[in-house]
Design a protein around this nucleic acid. Structure first.
Length: 724
DNA sequence: AGCACGCCGACT
DNA sequence: GTCGGCGTGCTC
């Protein structure tokens, strides 16, 4: 007996595809989206494989779902992502399968056109409609009514009379058709050469990674647009991945200026019916270019020929919940599986990408100069040891003068301080009690606007007390140090007539409102922007000519092995915001340690030397340029059981060859988030220089069974070349 | 992700 | 007795 069997993967946290019988008469192909019974209910799933099965007692596929099938290379990619991230394959599938259970019917668009004799009774309104409809072109009812200056009722009347004819129109296209020849830009010789290199890679149509490294303002975007144009000319689709925040209308307009229409934007703000249709257009190939956040990487493109990862060093590419992955690295793998090139663009490439270039795995194309003869911003330090700040002030005299000059010329200033809230530390003047988080012992940050003390570590929030909780003194609480809210207070006092805005990740109103505010800043509606690292990300503010870094030393002292690299990238990005329009820019950097390697490299512009030094320091410290990190949460019913599990884990690690020094055991005090619902949990961090060690270790860990395995978080600071 | 099943305390 | 709280494990 050999009946056809479908192995169906269900988009839930299940690793195995389930087998279902295929009813006679139902045509099912691999990749098809189908409805299947699961337990007591019914769900959708994707046919992962078809085979001839035995006489097993299987439930049957209910039927096919009218949704785009997942192409075989995408299924291979998802299998790989699940394997690599040690996630259930169903969870990987869930990232690709955005089909809604029920697709609501779209109201059909109705068009009208001239079709018969004039009506028996003419009115002024009817005359205007007939004049507007003259020529016989097909327009929608609303457009015609608007053109004639009448209400839709008049149109309906004329349709009833037979003068106009109603026709059902095809639904409005969800994405325009970008034209690779719409506006070929005038590129600099440097850009032309760089673009030619990228175009060659796309034309060759084989897998390969190219780093496009260009200083801020060098025209990286225009350069990689040429690679997009080449993909379009070859009839293939292109995906531009970017950090969610960079997907502004300013970027979409820039694209439209080059290609005649906006790209299809895919991000968390695209929902419902529109998301549905865009999904379909991507699968049919109708959407030619997608600009999207990291989730766009998993869509079922019909004929993808290029992925550009803009700002490849951005940490926003890391997905830290559910399936843990780094979108940049997964893009490299997708390119490899499907056989097309990937372009990584950045002004400050990540260390791992640099190492991959050095080792010859990635090609590199550089744009070392700004476009259009623009110069890089002049960067100068304000040494706070020699020019101490007055009590209660955070903006040095020299910076204040510069702000005044800049805004006086109608230009914009950015004040950068990577610290949310009003003050990072609160203490009692009477008894010196420090306000700390009850969970993590981190300092509580005052948020004056919300009248609260907030832990930026675990999110714990409490009301700011009237009297000191330790000694009971009234009005004794002192705010120590500045956050952006406090800077806003100082700016309001010093520059009362300037328009200011504070931008940080706790900005009220969500991504949509933030995106609008960024557009407003770009349009020059603000004089002084005060912001956290949010403002460092790839948004272009042409009127911004001054950047003031209020405390460049933040972040240099954290224990994170990537602290120096991150701080350097952040400061370089932020200072690079200055002078990207027609006027030259400058940056003033307030610091107590201008000789620190990070600050010195920033001031001298010698990024290469900094990275060489950074790589050397890591080598001496025995750290690989990047490694893999796994965090495992172990839970038992009480402390004793939890510790027993942790010991078992440590033993396994030892057997596998992960040495004890590679494993850090964090107790519950350091892992407040792991203490959930009164259960006792340990979080264990395992760092493995060699990929194979971690893979082996984690697979053994899984084999130890669900009792030991609380949950698993696989880190993603990885070397993408060990992938395939 | 749902949903069932099973084990506990607290009620008509 | 049995109702319903949640914690655990299964779903072809």
């Amino acid at each position: 007996m050999a009946d056809p069997v479908a192995d169906v993967l269900i988009p839930l946290a299940i690793d195995t595809a389930y087998s279902y019988a295929i009813p006679t008469g139902l045509a099912v192909a691999e990749g098809d989206v189908v409805r299947v019974p699961l337990g007591t209910r019914e769900t959708v799933g994707v046919v992962w494989a078809l085979r001839q099965g035995g006489a097993a007692n299987l439930k049957s596929v209910v039927g096919r779902v009218d949704a785009p099938a997942l192409p075989a290379p995408l299924r291979r990619f998802l299998d790989w992502v699940a394997w690599y991230t040690i996630s259930p394959r169903g969870s990987a599938l869930a990232m690709s399968l955005k089909v809604a259970e029920e697709i609501p019917d779209e109201a059909p668009r109705v068009g009208v056109r001239l079709a018969g004799p004039p009506p028996a009774r003419m009115t002024p309104a009817r005359t205007r409609v007939l004049a507007a409809a003259a020529g016989g072109a097909l327009t929608t009812k609303r457009e015609l009514a608007e053109a004639a200056g009448v209400s839709a009722g008049v149109i309906d009347g004329l349709v009833d009379e037979g003068t106009l004819e109603a026709v059902t129109l095809a639904p409005e296209p969800v994405a325009g058709l970008p034209d690779p020849d719409f506006a070929r830009p005038a590129l600099s010789p440097q850009q032309t050469e760089a673009a030619a290199g990228l175009v060659r890679a796309v034309a060759a149509g084989v897998a390969g990674v190219t780093l496009l490294e260009g200083v801020t303002g060098s025209g990286k975007t225009e350069t990689y647009f040429e690679a997009v144009a080449q993909a379009l000319a070859q009839g293939r689709q292109a995906l531009i991945l970017m950090p969610e925040i960079a997907l502004t209308s300013a970027f979409l307009d820039r694209f439209a200026a080059r290609f005649g229409t906006r790209p299809a934007a895919w991000h968390s703000g695209v929902t419902g019916r529109r998301r549905e249709r865009l999904y379909g257009a991507i699968a049919s190939g109708e959407a030619r270019v997608v600009a999207g956040a990291r989730s766009a990487l998993f869509l079922p493109y019909a004929q993808l020929g290029l992925i550009v990862v803009d700002e490849e060093h951005e940490t926003a590419y890391k997905q830290e919940d559910g399936v843990h992955y780094h979108a940049r690295d997964m893009a490299v793998v997708r390119g490899r599986i499907e056989g097309f090139p990937v372009v990584l663009a950045s002004a400050t490439p990540s260390l791992e990408t640099r190492v991959n270039v050095e080792r010859g795995r990635y090609a590199r194309i550089a744009l070392p100069e700004r476009f259009g003869g623009r110069t890089l911003p002049q960067i100068a330090a304000i040494d706070l040891r020699r020019h101490p700040l007055p009590q209660g002030r955070w903006i040095a005299q020299r910076l204040e003068t510069a702000i005044l000059e800049t805004t006086g010329r109608g230009e914009q200033a950015l004040l950068f301080l990577n610290r949310r809230g009003y003050a990072p530390l609160t203490l009692c003047r009477a008894c010196a009690h420090r306000y700390e988080c009850v969970n993590c012992s981190a300092w509580l940050v005052e948020h004056r606007f919300r009248r609260a003390l907030v832990c930026h570590h675990c999110g714990h929030t409490e009301r700011k007390p009237e009297a000191c909780v330790a000694c009971g003194s009234l009005d004794s609480l002192a705010a120590c140090g500045p956050g952006v809210e406090r800077i806003a207070e100082e700016v309001a006092a010093v520059f009362p007539d300037k328009r200011t805005i504070v931008l940080s990740s706790d900005f009220p109103g969500g991504t949509e409102r933030l995106r609008r505010e960024l557009d407003a800043i770009a349009a020059g509606e603000v004089d002084i922007v005060i912001g956290t690292q949010l403002v460092a990300k790839g948004h272009n503010f042409p009127g911004m000519t001054l950047v003031g870094v209020l405390d460049a030393d933040i972040g240099l002292t954290s224990g994170d092995p990537r602290a120096a690299e991150r701080t350097f990238q952040l400061l370089q990005q932020v200072t690079g915001r200055a002078g990207r329009g027609d006027r030259p820019g400058r940056a003033l950097v307030q610091t107590y340690q201008p000789e620190h390697p990070v600050i010195a490299a920033l001031l001298s512009g010698e990024a290469e030397r900094f990275y060489e030094e950074e790589a050397r320091v890591r080598e001496i410290a025995g750290l690989p340029p990047f490694g893999r990190l796994a965090a495992l949460v172990v839970s038992g019913v009480d402390r004793a059981e939890t510790e027993a599990y942790a010991r078992a884990l440590a033993r396994t690690a030892h057997e596998i060859g992960v040495t004890a020094s590679d494993m850090i055991v964090l107790g519950p005090a350091e892992a407040p988030l792991a203490l959930v619902r009164g259960r006792f949990r340990y979080r264990l961090l395992v760092k493995c220089p060699r990929e194979a060690d971690l893979q082996g270790f984690l697979r053994q860990w899984i084999a130890m069974g669900p009792k030991v395995r609380g949950s698993l978080r696989v880190g993603i600071d990885v070397d993408p070349q060990s992938f395939l």
